[in-house]
Amino acid sequence: MAGEKGKAYLLAGGTDLLVRMRGDFIDPDLIVDIKRIPGIQEIRKTASGFSIGAGVPCAMLGRDKALASAWPGVVEAAQLIGSDQIQGRCTMVGNLCNASPAADSVPALVAAKAKAVVVGPGGRRRVPVEDVVTGPGRTSLKKGDIVVAIELQKRPPKSGDAYLRFTPRTEMDIAVCSAGVSLTLGAGNVVKQARVALGAVAPTVVLVPKAARALVGTRLEDDALMKLAAACEAACSPIADKRGTVEFRTEVAGVMARRAAVMAYDRARGKR
């Protein structure tokens, strides 16, 4: 592939690639179907957690009980992409490499501190998910690089994650804004560790450390949630487009973050 002179594209689920071909946004000279690479359609439990192959359709994630109970937020996020029809094809790696700021699985993966396993001419390396996308439609991957898997860590006890997005329709929609939150609790159910990531409010998914700090040391009292929302709003630099205004995206990103934090907290406490 690295040797192809023309424009080469990788085909995983095809739910973005074929749409872009159809709209004449791209005109590939070479399409490489990665689904037949051995192991690429597998979810593996590893010593350090989970490894999800680049060809795994999102519908499969929910069927993996261990994964769904360890990372319910990540699985929910991936399963919000499109309809059942799309779910049967689309992949998290495709969702990541398509590099849309509104990608549903990415804020959840960033909150989960997931890593992308990249294989390329330079060998094999692990890249934090938040470092893969550099702007709308742009990634840090070099020609010949392939993301072959996503790795998620093992969960410490009393951990939970959640992802929420805002869409005008209940289904079949693109996030107007979204938030992924991952929490680990300590003694007395006080938040020990937190990561908060927002989608569709900046050129890339943004990790918001200040929002995470607003939660650490709290039991998500109202005051903490208000600080979280304020930190999220401050981290937004969205565009106004057909899907939403700057004001709307900014304000509702805070709302999504608050609601996702409560869900993650309840999950961490074992409350479903």
Binding site: R169, T170, M172, D173, I174, D241, K242
Partner: peptide, 16 residues
């Protein structure tokens, strides 16, 4: 026209 498709021209889906 910014939304010439069924993704961003949102007709109600079954769950709506």
């Amino acid at each position: 026209l910014q939304n010439p498709g069924f993704l961003d021209y949102r007709i109600p889906v079954c769950s709506d």
